[in-house]
Amino acid sequence: MNSKKTEISADYKKKNWLRRKETLQRAWYKFSANILSVVGLIIVIAVILLAVFAPWVAPHPDHAGAVVDFTATMQSPGAGNLMGTDGVGRDLLSRIIFGFRFSLMMGLVVIGLAAPPGIILGLIAGYYQGTKIDTAIMRFADIFLAVPPLILAMSITSVLSPNIFNAMLAVTLMWWPWYTRLVYGLASSLQNEYFVQSAEVMGASTPHILFKEILPNCISAIFTKITLDMGFVIIIGASLSFVGLGAQPPTPDLGTMVADGAKYMPDQWWLTIFPALAIVFVVLGFNLLGDGLRDVLAVEEV
């Protein structure tokens, strides 16, 4: 008896694994058919690797901290410093590489904090569509959506003191309603599906229905949105820094670098252009990747 059960189970596991492998392969095939998606993936991986290994990759890792070298200020890009140096003699390439760290951290922390509560609220509101719970949650979300995002973030960071933590807090506060909305839309249509109704008939608990029945069917859309949002959050973070409400010196931050460098345009162009290109690079990478994922998952849903 026992051995037979084990056999069946092993057989099932193997088949299951093969099926999953096949699905993944099919997904990768679709994904790689679009060359732009692959470019996006490569960019994202490259940025992540650069950020993680910044202390080893950057030519002058100490330049990310409180270091000045007034013998080498404002040097144009060349052999010594590939992207030139800034007004206090720090290597710009090193600071951009370290700047990726802040940008990625901004994206990860903000989405890590904003997505879970947003998703849970969206599931609840969607499942109880038409009730007072739905109205309460969704109108509350609408209040946040009614305020222009950058204005809300700016007012929060200027009332509190401007630093990285407050900038993240501010962006998080304005970001969660988007997830609530997305999941609400999906959950409210899913709640009429047969599999949800049968779970209800079988007496499944509400958490079971929310998290085991509805959520797995939303996950692909959520995942796509997370990838796309990384780019937007990084942009918002850079904008906050640009107006002086984000990271404070000497923390290397791409938005701050663009803002400070702009005062030295057009002669010391590298101070602005390279950090700005770096922002474009990161955001573009995440957007291309997100688009690719959406294509793959969208076909899957049909």
Partner: peptide, 11 residues
């Protein structure tokens, strides 16, 4: 330029 001065004193 006051920022450069600040970075100098910080270092």
């Amino acid at each position: 330029d006051l920022e450069r001065l600040a970075l100098m004193l910080q270092a």
